[in-house]
Amino acid sequence: MIDILLLLIIVACAIAAVSIKDLLSAIMILGVYSFIMATIFTRLNAVDVAFTEASVGAGITSVLMIAALSRTKRYEYLYTKSERRKPSALFLKVLSLFIVIITGAVLVYGTLDMPEFGDPDAPANKHVSPRYIEESHHETGVNNFVTAVLASYRGYDTLGETTVIFTAGICVILLLRKFKKDDDDRYAGICY
């Protein structure tokens, strides 16, 4: 029952985050969204993921967003009625709705053949993962299977993940650090 309640709340959060015009509030609600998501993860026994989502997803993302917001504008532009009725705006809306509905319909169509929720005989639980559950303790000596897989079996994904952080870090530094202008800026005089 509590699961259903959580899901309802999270849907409400998502709708609220998306529709509110005050971006600061939207960001806060997004934080709440992440946090409830972490709770749901815990309910689904994904404790490691829940930790990460709560700290990284809800925490860091919110902090970053607020930091960004502090340097830009807090309120989203309110379109007037006439602006909202312009053909281009309407077209965009209809197009996005169309895309979204199609995508959603395709996804729902896919679920028709899905194994039931929690089915222990689902292929996802049968083929590769049993070995992680049965052997990883012997093979790696770690009690937590998730950690074992993360660090050992799929260690290179983790290396990739680290690289992603590094790449993002360098990009952010590149974008935000104030660099001195070049002394001899050859582009200064050229217009094209």
């Binding site: 994904d157 990739g160 790449t167 590149l174």
Partner: peptide, 20 residues
């Protein structure tokens, strides 16, 4: 899944490169 990870590495780097 590794494709996804590397895809994100190259994409993030790509965003940075373009923004330069």
């Amino acid at each position: 899944f590794n494709i996804y990870v590397f895809l994100e590495i190259s994409s993030l780097a790509g965003y940075g490169l373009i923004a330069i």
